[in-house]
């Protein structure tokens, strides 16, 4: 498993983007924590930035990287290697280097300023989000041959998860405000990994009191250990399902 993975990680490190990304995350998290006197507040601001930046960088960087890798993939595919092995090595290389960048960039500062269970959960969700968006970008690239189209698709997907999905949910809430939608909202939040991560971390902070009745229902479910495990499981599904589909597609792709 390790040879192709090794070459991909070396290549990603040689490409300085990931190093800048790490540095950027480090500077942002460090400044946020030193500006706020209350570390919980710092954590909250950092959460909002992480939920925006981490998916964006993960999906765009992976998409561009996979397209630039097409020569490398072509070279490997006529060697005695399994296609599945090549594709999964590519996934592992991207997932490991982006999660590692997050761990160094944000993980260190969170561990210094907020070494609590909440801080740990935030580090975990940040890493999971990186991996999820690598998996989604791989699904996008395997079905699109054209590079420009593929990158456009990646940006649209990110927009959908970061903004459009919330807009649709709000619209739904207003339209059906006479009905009890709290239980349904919990299911719907599972369809967006960014929202699910946000809820998982927010409920650990005391601001969930501001979220009204829905917040109370959420706290009853996601606040418990069982709810936490369920949300981690759903986040893991967001990695596994796109990865399985993209691997299946890659195995019969013409190169």
């Amino acid at each position: 498993m390790n040879k192709v993975f090794k070459y991909i990680v070396i290549d990603i490190l040689r490409n300085k983007t990931v190093l800048f990304y790490t540095l950027f995350l480090f500077v942002v998290s460090f400044t946020l924590f030193s500006f706020e006197e209350n570390t919980a507040k710092g954590l909250l601001s950092l959460l909002n930035i992480i939920l925006f930046i981490v998916p964006l960088i993960s999906i765009i960087f992976s998409t561009i990287y996979i397209y630039n890798c097409s020569e490398f993939i072509e070279l490997l595919i006529c060697q005695p290697l399994k296609r599945k092995y090549i594709w999964l090595s590519l996934f592992n290389g991207l997932a490991v280097s982006l999660s590692f960048a997050f761990l160094i960039g944000c993980g260190i500062t969170i561990l210094i300023y907020e070494p609590t269970a909440t801080g740990m959960i935030m580090i975990l969700t940040g890493c999971l989000l990186s991996v999820i968006f690598v998996a989604i970008s791989m699904l996008g690239t395997v079905s699109t041959r054209d590079k420009a189209k593929g990158i456009g698709k990646a940006i649209l997907l990110w927009l959908y998860f970061a903004l459009i999905f919330d807009g649709l949910v709000l619209f739904l809430l207003f339209q059906f405000s006479e009905y009890p939608l709290e239980k349904l909202m919990m299911v719907i939040s599972g369809f967006n990994p960014i929202d699910l991560s946000r809820i998982t971390v927010l409920l650990r902070l005391d601001v969930s009191a501001l979220m009204g009745y829905t917040g109370a229902v959420f706290k009853d479910f996601f606040g418990t250990t069982f709810g936490f495990i369920i949300s981690l499981f759903v986040l893991a599904l967001w990695v596994i399902i796109p990865l399985i589909i993209s691997t299946k597609k890659f195995q019969t792709k013409d190169l």
């Binding site: 290549d11 490409n15 630039n68 890798c69 097409s70 020569e71 490398f72 072509e74 070279l75 006529c78």
Partner: peptide
């Protein structure tokens, strides 16, 4: 042993 028509290799 395969020699492609247009060899494409990692640029850097």
């Amino acid at each position: 042993g395969y020699m492609p028509q247009i060899g494409r290799y990692p640029d850097n």
